[in-house]
Design a protein around this nucleic acid. Structure first.
Lengths: 205, 205
DNA sequence: GCATGTGAACGGATTCACAGCG
DNA sequence: CGCTGTGAATCCGTTCACATGC
């Protein structure tokens, strides 16, 4: 195993392995192999073994991997054994859908606060949370030490809101808004623009 | 320019270039350069020039690129000059948010029908569309010749529904459900799992 | 002068193939 | 024997650097 520095592209595949392993666990499977896991994900078995080898030796030769223990190792590596506190900013249709999503907690993310700048929305309940005003956002995030945010505000506000989040101490932003953000390099940003993904496919139609 | 076969990774970047060019156009910019575009996207200028070179010569030496005409070329390459008809299957919180999104049409995607299997939802209006029953889905998609779908059903139904979509003639699926689908190789699938993206970031926290 | 388009050089990721071990 | 873990080989993508032409 290499302790040098793990290529980002490897880290990007680990959550996928984890998701499939959790699914296998739910199916009652106890053992799997790099071959089987790869087949389910459309990835080569060598790729999976090589990826895992960056972090240690988790398998038994001749046997394969224990599903639950490998899932546990991946959770540990990805730091999602416990759930991170997450804030959602922008409670429009999409933000509301995100906030209502019950699939986050099991996977290491717990939504703890919702913010919006529209006074008409302040005080609205979504799931078991109440929408708060963005005026209080920075202080609230800082007080609670939240480090992860989901951003679902209109495109023209995205950059400004993101800067406020960074000011508040947020270090990872999942951006649902179709815009490139310009932020300090120590802040990580991932984008989810469905149209980009669609346009990747229309090329091939 | 190479007519051989464009690497998929290049195709995946084109929609991003297009999105930024449209934004520049909206800002009133007429000319740009690979350098400027790259700076806005966090991509090297050489990368952008090389990517574009797979499809032709769109710039003027010493000057750069005309924003609108390069955007037009990319739309043509990605086949999004006209909007594709798209169906949305699964009208829960997320599907409803997707269906209400007004940002699709300008970018080459027009939602034309909504389907759900829950009889309580059939007939509900979302935006200016009415939710239809999945019982009619295959026939309806086939009749209208729709080739693109967005899938936002619960995980356990995703595979079965996706197979019905394929049967109906769908060739590209954007899957909002956190599951790997197993479909014929001629059907393209892109996945949008926010948790995967988040877990890529928690590794670095 | 300036920015494109591109062959060549480089670096990194994937695949191969096998030693090692249960 | 079967499957992992891993160096070596291969493949592929990015960057370099410059000729070309506005």
């Amino acid at each position: 195993m290499a302790t040098v520095q793990v290529p980002e592209i490897v880290v990007r595949r680990l959550p996928l392995y984890l998701r499939e392993l959790m699914k296998m666990g739910a199916e009652g499977r106890e053992i799997t192999s790099s071959q089987e896991l790869g087949a389910r994900l459309g990835i080569s078995s060598a790729q999976i073994r090589k990826d895992l080898s960056h972090f240690g030796e988790f398998g038994k030769q001749g046997t394969g991997y224990n599903v639950d223990s490998l899932a546990g190792e991946l959770k540990r590596i990805l730091k999602v054994e416990k759930a991170w506190d997450v804030v959602v900013v922008g409670i429009g249709d999409l933000g509301r859908a995100v906030a209502r999503n019950t699939g986050f907690v099991d996977r290491g993310l717990r939504i703890v606060a919702l913010f919006d700048s529209d006074s008409a929305k302040i005080g609205n309940r979504v799931g078991d949370l109440t929408v708060e005003t963005t005026a209080d956002m920075v202080a609230s995030i800082r007080t609670h030490g939240v480090r992860v945010a989901m951003l679902a505000v209109p495109a023209r506000e995205a950059q400004a809101v993101a800067e406020k989040l960074v000011e508040a101490g947020i270090q990872a932003i999942l951006c649902y808004t179709p815009t490139s953000l310009s932020l300090p390099v120590n802040v990580r940003v991932e984008y989810l623009d469905p149209v980009l993904r669609m346009q990747q496919m229309t090329y091939y139609l």
